[in-house]
Amino acid sequence: MQKKKIGKKILSANEEYALKNSRFLARQKKLCLNMISSPGSGKTTILARTISELKGKIKIGVIEGDIQTDFDAQKIRATGAPAVQINTGGACHLSAAQISDALQNLPLADLDLIFIENVGNLVCPSAFELGETAKVVVLSVAEGDDKPAKYPAIFAKSKVLLVNKIDLLRAGDLVDFDVERVKADARKLNKGIEIFPISAKTCEGMTYWYDWLLKSVRAQHQGLAFDR
């Protein structure tokens, strides 16, 4: 019987692809944001609205991750933006190798910003780096204000938190959701996180998100270090 010390990272294969993607995107000076949330938080609606509102200012492409169907890619293409659909066939998250392939299928030369819409899941996607410039977590108010405390990993790792569907908060006491509690809990885990309460449906608060995107695209164009 003998024991051997190994000390090898178990997800090193994924990390190698992620590093390759991240270097490629930095060389191309493209901003790439990995969007993560529970199913139904409004990721696709936020993206479609963002693409339409920023038309003429920046060009956006999308990599869509879903277990099945290309519904989301169709919704993105309806805005006129290019979209590549990845079907994971059951897997609960995207992996870096899938992103390497998808990047080859987007007209990158024409784009300023690439969004990756990850599979709807607040846990698994946070454990797999894709080589993105930063992560954006979306939390909709109907999901409850305890999510940063319950699912700390994604809130600790994200650069931006979008609190979506805030128009529902006007529906009297139908939705119990304390935006201040979410802000405080998220900032305890992540001091530098940018938090934008928005409604992709009514457009409330979206201009702050757009300003952040435009500023970040400019910084990436200039090759400035992106503070995660």
Binding site: M1, Q2, K3, I6, K8, K9, I10, L11, A156
Partner: peptide, 13 residues
């Protein structure tokens, strides 16, 4: 920073 996933040691027969 969080600890990564690491294969630390293998025991052989």
């Amino acid at each position: 920073p969080d600890a990564p996933l690491v294969l630390e040691e293998i025991e052989f027969e």
